[in-house]
Design a protein around this nucleic acid. Structure first.
Length: 273
DNA sequence: TAAGGCCTGCTC
DNA sequence: GAGCAGGCCTTA
């Protein structure tokens, strides 16, 4: 499940592989992945374009092209972009350049692709609504606290929601909440300024470690070179139901919060009101 | 703000 | 064969 560290790792590898390359052909193998446009037109219109720059915003990959256009990819839950792989029937789209073929591989087909103009307003709705990047200097503790304070939802729901802070998914939300000692069901607006600051720091620490590990690989996530991340070996709560907490030795539990499986330590992350 | 839907491979 | 996994979106 690609979250910020996984998408960033993929992005960096794609920059090495594709920036400066001319797209020879785009093959749309599953037209349902293309949002807001005719798939065959998309394929024709982008052939011959040069990939100027590849970037990431939240969990979105953004390909800036010349002539000016944008190819935007969200990997969903099981999406990956693989270099030179044989078609297994799970490829939804391929991008061919002189030196490589990259395939958008996506077993559960929850990923999406958008073709947009270069206008800053022409973006997928989810990308337009995205909150600040976790490492954005403008996101300081007081701003984060104010954003948390505006909502009545649980911390789990707010951090998954992408509007207060971008890029976190189920794994890193659980890990950051454990790191900061906050209960996932705790109402976001109930946090003190100090707790909000601690949570922001915890999010950043967890993401830095995950980026250094190249992300978390459970089953689907791979980089374009088919290498795996290793952060699964450092997880403190996610996927550790029934095992003992590294901090207090109580047993990690699992509950459903905001409709998502949520792992936490009932002692370190005691519920408060 | 919460719940349901999409999607498919895996587990029980 | 049912239920679960979790990205995001739509609907109530």
């Amino acid at each position: 499940m690609p979250e910020l560290p996984e998408v960033e790792t993929i992005c960096q590898r794609l920059q090495d592989l594709l920036e400066g390359e001319v797209i020879r052909e785009i093959r749309v193998l599953d037209p349902t992945c293309i949002q807001g446009g005719d798939a065959s037109h998309v394929a024709r219109s982008l052939a011959g374009s040069r990939v100027e720059k590849i970037g990431r915003r939240g969990k979105y990959l953004i390909f800036d092209l010349e002539p000016p256009a944008r190819l935007i990819v969200h990997l969903g839950m099981t999406g990956s972009i693989i270099k030179d792989s044989a078609d297994t029937g799970r490829h939804r789209l391929t991008i061919c350049t002189e030196s490589a073929t990259l395939a958008f591989h996506d077993v559960r087909r929850l990923g999406r692709v958008w073709i947009c103009s270069s206008s800053p307003d022409d973006l997928p709705p989810g990308l337009r609504r995205l909150g600040p990047e976790p490492f954005d200097r403008c996101l300081d503790a007081s701003r984060f606290h104010r954003r948390l304070n505006r909502t009545r939802s649980s911390l789990k729901a707010v951090l998954l929601g992408q509007r207060v802070i971008a890029g976190l998914g189920n794994i890193y939300v659980d890990e950051a909440l454990w790191e900061s000692g906050l209960h996932p069901s705790r109402r976001a607006s109930s946090l003190t300024e100090e707790e909000s600051a601690g949570l922001l720091e915890a999010i950043r620490r967890v993401l830095v470690r995950a980026l250094e590990a190249g992300g978390t690989t459970f089953s689907d996530y791979r980089t374009p070179d088919n290498t795996s991340g290793s952060f699964q070996r450092q997880l403190k709560v996610y996927g550790r139901k029934g095992q003992s907490c590294n901090r207090c030795r109580h047993t990690i539990e699992r509950m459903v919060v905001a409709g998502r499986g949520t792992h936490y330590c009932p002692y370190c992350q005691r519920e408060q009101t």
